[in-house]
Amino acid sequence: MTDKKIDKETGVETTGHNWDGIEELNNPLPRWWLWTLYACIVWAIGYTILYPAWPMISGATPGMLGYSTRANVANDITAHEAKNAALTADLVAADLPTLAPDDPLHRYAVARGASVFRAQCSQCHGSGAAGAKGYPNLLDDDWLWGGDVASIATTIDHGIRNDTDPDARWSQMPAFGDILSREEITSVVAYVGSLSAPAEDPGLADAGATVFSDNCAACHGDNAQGNRDMGAPDLTDAIWLYGGDTATLTETVTKARFGVMPAWGQRLTDADVAAVAVYVHGLGGGE
């Protein structure tokens, strides 16, 4: 023990390691600290055996306990649905138009509908339900096929102009490019534009009125306020699905429009359809 080196300043033994005159003191760690380290290593080995751990070519070692976060989520969802079974049944059986807003079932429907909407509907209608060109804004008071909760539920259930559901809402606007002359289209566009904004060329718009009553009024109505039985839009209000400028209106009249919505009744449960209907009805435009 004669060759023990003691640091003069601190009186602590050094390890004998010396770097440019700086010596390393040996303040030994407690031994339990070392055992804790070993225990952690043993724990880690056991953990990688029991739980999914080592990456392999395709996937990872599954672990002996068969633990899977994916399976856990599935279990959680199943358990959640089982817990809500009574509410779900009530929602399917409920008469939606008479469901009071402060009814707990209504609150449940809004919450459930919101999550379904974000997952299934927001791709076209937007996460805020404000729509986009060709995809209706669900926040306003303008409805193509009806804005009461029953009509909304029917629209969601069967969809619009799809081939998969025979009960889908259906109508088809002719492409007037093949029917009307270029001048007639120009005049009817001017007339339609003048219904919601001051006419730029009153004479042209007056000529268009005749074209309108001969060709368009059958669906859009004599007063151009639309027809919900056919999903024909109101052309007199401030809202345009595709756009109210001359170029867009000309395109619409010439080539027609054919907006399609899937029949969600084929993909969602009855409760989900009812929930989304209640949610959409409560976004601000519900009638």
Binding site: M1, K4, G16, P30
Partner: peptide, 9 residues
């Protein structure tokens, strides 16, 4: 010889 790096309590 040096003291061990880990000391018992």
């Amino acid at each position: 010889s040096t003291s061990p790096l880990y000391a018992p309590r």
